[in-house]
């Protein structure tokens, strides 16, 4: 038993190291309450819808979301726009299609099954338009950054004047939370930049939180289903384990050895 405790202790340490190693060399991120964290974490629907608005009106001019389709917007566990709303959103975009029977490409209004329209035709075009830096695709961005949602949330609010002695090239900006502090994206958010239809006050903080929530959903569209199933699975396992434990005790009581 003593040994088991020792091993458990050591395992904890190594797991702790593992998490630490990811967290080393990092500044403290801004903290906020995320509704999707925890055993029963769920997305805040209206935050997702507002976040989508911020994405479309602000981010989408440079950042693609190539793994998302318009149909996702009305799916369960997401922003849950009604199907009609999602259709209207899709139709507001021009989608390139073809070739048609004459061999020509043409544009048409978007459909639910279309992927989110990309701001640039290809990576080269994106780089050319952004001073050589490619604005990363945002579909899985939250999972592709060490600090996850906290990092993105902080970064959006992390634009400050560079400290003394730091010189910035043209088109390079200073951000407290960026790795190396130099970022090619200018500060995008300012108070009142978007007008929320639900009347929420569009502060920088609010918009950062909404759009980060939206990005979290984009990266993990089945998060709610996962949490729900996880809870059921673990409760089921605990009950089964308890039953098996008592069966085991009963069976082993036939012999003198303890189990």
């Amino acid at each position: 038993m003593k040994n088991s405790i020792r091993i458990f202790f050591l395992t904890t340490i190594i797991l702790g190291f593992q998490f630490n190693s990811n967290a080393a060399e990092k500044v403290e991120y801004l903290k906020t309450d995320w509704s999707f964290k925890g055993l029963f974490g769920k997305f805040d629907r209206s935050a997702l819808q507002r976040g989508y608005q911020v994405y479309t009106e602000v981010c989408s001019s440079c950042h693609s979301m190539k793994y998302l389709s318009y149909r996702n917007l009305s799916e369960k566990g997401g922003p849950e726009f009604t199907e009609a709303q999602a259709k209207a959103i899709a139709a507001s975009f021009e989608v390139k299609d073809g070739p048609n029977a004459d061999g020509d490409m043409f544009t048409r209004p978007g459909k639910l099954s279309d992927k989110f329209v990309m701001p640039y035709d290809n990576i080269k075009a994106a780089q050319a338009a952004n001073g050589g830096a490619y604005p990363p695709d945002m579909s899985v961005l939250v999972k592709a950054r060490g600090g996850g949602v906290d990092y993105i949330y902080s970064l959006l609010q992390g634009y400050v004047d560079p400290p003394e002695g730091v010189t910035l090239d043209d088109g390079v900006y200073y951000n407290k939370y960026m790795y190396g502090n130099k970022i090619k994206m200018a500060n995008q958010l300012s108070d009142g930049l978007v007008e929320y239809s639900d009347g929420t006050n569009a502060t920088i903080e609010q918009m950062s939180k909404d759009v980060t929530t939206f990005l979290m959903w984009a990266a993990e569209p089945h998060l709610e289903a996962r949490h729900k199933m996880g809870f059921k699975a673990i409760v089921y396992l605990i009950i089964l384990t308890t039953l098996v434990y008592f069966s085991m005790k009963k069976i082993w009581s036939r012999i003198e050895t303890k189990v």
């Binding site: 593992q18 998490f19 990811n22 055993l39 999972k143 592709a144 950054r145 060490g146 996850g148 996962r226 949490h227 199933m229 996880g230 809870f231 699975a233 673990i234 396992l237 605990i238 089964l240 384990t241 098996v244 434990y245 069966s247 085991m248 069976i251 082993w252 189990v259």
Partner: peptide, 29 residues
Amino acid sequence: IKDGFALLMFMIVFAFFVFYTPNILGHAD
């Protein structure tokens, strides 16, 4: 039955990782 009991305990830990922190053991990059 003893192996089964231990396996179930193990599966609880396993399930916790899968359902609640599925990416923590991987690298963000």
